[in-house]
Nucleic acid binder design. Structure first.
Length: 852
DNA sequence: AGGAAGATGTTTTTT
DNA sequence: ACATCTTCCT
């Protein structure tokens, strides 16, 4: 987060560098720095810089503890470097050391470095580690995501780009709303258009840097379907522009367009960033690729001259021809971990890097420092089934480690119970909750897990999922802020128009819109002028009042206006939000509602208010726009709090780039992994395999693979088949606690069909393990004890008191004896030794138990 | 205008 | 199963 507001301002206290503007080049040197940077110095580093170094980082050489390949990746100097980094091969280490080396050896100023990461969290981590290596904070580095970097550039160059610098950023839900409205107005739904479909298509096009016009030029105008799509696209573009809004894809595309249209503007950034490093390069799409391509373009002599005349310092960077050579580019990636093709990531960007940047150096990192050999062997075996890849084998010096544990549950709930039990077992062995993670393919799978975890008193955290900022009440509150920051944003205005209810219905809304249209004024202005619309006095009053409220809030933020009455200076984001929430009665309405859910909603809004206060504290110089930007660009993985002592639950996609001691990979079933939807996509199954591979390689010491025989979806319970990928793991690596073929306890449930492999995978000698070859037995009946019963009941045992020695009966586990009771109030937990089911922990308040 | 009951679709992944 | 959207009723 701090990366979005990294201290790049002249107000920064450190004397090292003085900046000269948004694209500031270190034009003036601090007194303590004698040597100016001169772009990269080939060979300079190894000669006098790094190895002997230690001058800058508390004496620790940057190369200590690196293997030869890693060293090479840190030390190499040249225009282009590709680091092919297998999972867990220490690429973050290499990147941070490389950056620290560039800065520490004075080859580059921090401000000449642009490092792109996949998430804000990764950016923050990288910044921290670089500063740790350097032994000091280094302002001016840009370490951020593609999107954050583009926002920063676009806000700085807004005028050039034809935008307001306070443009709003629409998330996918916002753009879908706009599209939905357009579809409705054009009655395009009769042609089979859906908001989601159109939104996806537009997103894909923008990722390819197409816009309406370029698309329309090549469109087949005899196809009514196509004509309609073009019309929707056109409307969408028009509305976003009118609202001074950009969607996620625009952020990149507009930046690229800006660079291409204004070479001199681009040159400011080309000149500034002499070293560009991109992480997760395999997941870049065409727009991102182009962004990097533009930034690393050499600056033509005539543009250099232009800059020079404009007073920029460029002479020192010129080569013999008068041009400024392109920045040096380092990309890191692993094509085996490419999992975002579905949203336009183009694996060719990394595969063809050498062709793209002739003379590029390639370094391969294959030694893994994360996982045990058993885990790596499984990963290697799986991924080797993807043809069309460079063979690459991860290896480790760590040793074999524990076997992979396999488990087949009767249902998703059974699977979840197994995981909860195993987590407790691990806990008993001294593994902390925070070192455990549970991965799944789809968010829907969290339900069963959460239910069981709550019951079993396993502390957990869902990373991502339904995000805080996507909640309706938060979007409402945010819409107030957006309306203040960007009066042109009609979407925000319409959203708050009748939230909370103030008697302004859809009819009134339409009247306002057409009034604005007819008079060529903004929706906001139409609200101010509502008096001349001849509506009822009550409605008119409500509209005008809202408009006035927003205007007033805007004044609170405007430094020019602070002259008169209000003694205080410019108000902070939290003050403005507090004002808006109070005056609009949004918060009060939620609090006094009789809908029980509104209580939580009110709490959420208050949480947002608290967050703005934190934000103001951490970023004293940042304004409303900065806050809105930050909120727009937070990702699922960003809010992961490492310090919390909880088990982490997340999707396989979110898991990329993370690692845990113990990993549970759940739902390894056909239809789920690989997912049903991927079957029709061209590279689908291969991408799903990479996803599986990514999941496996997150584990350091222990890996659990679990699946269920039946899984509930769409309210129906369906039979699930083991994933084809399971067979790709050599049997001797897995120890099946309950194998896919032997889940027949309890009076002999039928053995079930696998994808018919006679040698079975892994079933270790237990009875019935090899009975499933060939035949296709009927689907097993869901075990009644589990099937969908957990959801049915919302239990509340009230103030049931238990103490050590009590005997209880549990719906699923039978009878048992309480050994211990811990915790307080509603969180009291009973530690129970069941007669047949073993030891469990139960949350007393809600567990399906009775005292005997 | 606002609320309740009924209809509908949604679940692949995300900056 | 659940949430959201639509339709109908007050």
């Amino acid at each position: 987060m701090s990366t979005l507001f990294d201290p790049d301002e002249p107000t920064d206290s450190r004397p090292m560098i003085v900046h000269d503007g948004p694209a500031g080049f270190p034009s003036t040197l601090g007194a303590n720095n004698a040597a100016p940077p001169a772009g990269f110095v080939p060979g300079g580093a190894s000669a006098g810089g790094l190895p002997g170094g230690g001058a800058w980082a508390g004496g620790d050489s940057l190369l200590d503890g690196l293997n030869p390949e890693q060293r090479e990746a840190v030390e190499y100097r040249g225009p282009a470097l590709l680091i092919v980094a297998g999972a867990g091969s220490g690429k973050t280490r290499v990147l941070t050391h490389r950056i620290a080396g560039l800065i520490g050896s004075r080859e580059a100023w921090p401000s000449q470095i642009l490092a792109i990461t996949f998430t804000n969290k990764a950016a923050a981590e990288m910044r921290e580690r670089v500063e740790q290596l350097l032994g000091q904070a280094s302002s001016g580095m840009w370490i951020s995501t593609f999107h954050s970097a583009c926002v920063r550039i676009l806000r700085a160059e807004a005028e050039r780009a034809g935008l307001s610098s306070s443009f709003t950023i629409y998330d996918s839900a916002d753009s879908r709303n706009v599209i939905k409205r357009i579809i409705k107005e054009l009655s395009a739904d009769t042609l089979g258009f859906t908001a989601a479909g159109v939104s996806n298509k537009i997103s894909k096009l923008k990722n390819e840097l197409a816009d309406v016009d370029s698309y329309a030029r090549n469109a087949n105008l005899n196809d009514p379907q196509e004509v309609m799509f073009v019309e929707i696209f056109r409307q969408y573009t028009k509305r976003l522009r009118a609202a001074q809004a950009l969607d996620f894809d625009d952020l990149l595309a507009e930046t690229v367009f800006l660079f291409r249209a204004f070479p001199a503007t681009a040159a400011l950034y080309q000149r500034r960033f002499r070293h560009i490093l991109v992480d997760e390069y395999q997941d870049t799409n065409h727009a991102q690729y182009s962004f990097i391509k533009e930034l690393t373009r050499p600056i033509e002599p005539h543009v250099v001259a232009e800059l020079d005349t404009a007073g920029h310092h460029v002479r020192s960077l010129q080569d013999a021809t008068g041009a400024i050579p392109g920045a040096s580019l380092t990309v890191v990636g692993d094509s085996d971990q490419s999992i975002y093709a579905f949203r336009g990531a183009d694996i060719r960007n990394i595969v063809e890097f050498e062709r793209d940047y002739p003379g590029a150096k390639v370094v391969l990192l294959e030694q893994n420092y994360r996982s045990t050999q058993n885990i790596l062997s499984a990963a290697n075996a799986v991924i080797s089934n993807n043809f069309d890849r460079k063979d690459k084998k991860l290896w480790t010096a760590i040793g074999d480690g524990a076997k992979i544990i396999g488990y087949t549950g009767y249902s998703g709930h059974d699977e979840a119970q197994f995981i909860a039990d195993e987590i407790e077992k691990l806990r008993g062995e001294g593994v902390a909750y925070r070192d455990i993670a549970v991965f799944y393919r789809t968010n829907a799978q969290t339900r069963a897990l959460e239910e069981i975890f709550v019951r079993s008193a396993v502390p957990y955290r869902v990373v991502g999922g339904t995000k805080f900022y996507e909640r309706a009440e938060i979007k409402d509150a945010m819409a107030y802020l957006i309306a203040v920051a960007n009066p042109a944003d009609e979407l925000a205005l319409r959203r708050i128009l009748n939230t909370p209810k103030r008697g302004i219905g859809p009819a009134t809304e339409t009247q306002l819109a057409s009034f604005a249209e007819a008079n060529g004024i903004s929706f906001r202005q139409a609200m101010r002028d509502a008096g001349s619309l001849g509506m009822g006095p009550k409605v008119t009053g409500a509209i005008v009042k809202l408009a006035r409220l927003l205007d007033e809030a805007a004044l609170m933020l405007d430094p020019a206006q602070r002259s008169s009455d209000s003694a205080a200076g410019v108000s902070s984001v939290s003050e403005v939000l507090g004002f808006l929430l109070t005056e609009s009665t949004l918060l009060e309405t939620l609090r006094s509602s009789r809908d029980p859910q509104d209580e939580t909603r009110a709490e959420n809004v208050e949480e947002l208010l608290a967050q703005t206060k934190d934000f103001v504290k951490e970023n004293p110089d940042a304004g409303l726009i900065d806050f809105l930007t930050q909120v727009s660009l937070v990702a699922a993985a960003d809010d992961l709090d490492d310090s919390s002592g909880t088990v982490s639950l997340m999707t396989l996609h979110t898991a990329k780039g993370l690692e845990y001691d113990s990993v549970f990979l759940t739902g390894i079933e056909e239809g789920l992994l690989p997912h049903q939807m991927s079957a029709s996509e061209p590279g689908g199954p291969a991408e799903e395999r990479r996803l599986f591979y990514v999941g496996i390689t997150r584990a350091r010491k222990r890996l659990y693979l679990s699946l269920a025989m039946t899984r509930a979806q769409f309210g129906e319970t369906n039979v699930a088949m083991p994933s084809r990928y399971l067979q790709e793991i050599p049997g001797d690596l897995i120890e099946w606690r309950q194998s896919p073929g032997m889940a027949n306890s309890r009076g002999g449930t039928q053995p079930r069909a696998l994808n018919a492999r006679r040698d079975g995978y892994g079933s270790r000698g237990s009875s019935g393990s090899d009975r499933f070859g060939g035949e296709l037995p009927p689907a097993p009946k869901p075990k009644t004890e589990w099937a969908n019963k957990v959801t049915a009941q919302v239990r509340d045992n009230g103030d049931l008191t238990l103490e050590a020695g009590d005997r209880i009966r549990h719906v699923d586990f039978g009878e048992g004896r309480v050994n211990q009771v811990t915790g307080e109030g509603t969180k009291r937990v009973a530690h129970v030794q069941f007669d047949t089911a073993g030891a469990k922990k139960l949350l007393i308040k809600i567990a399906p138990i009775e005292k005997l």
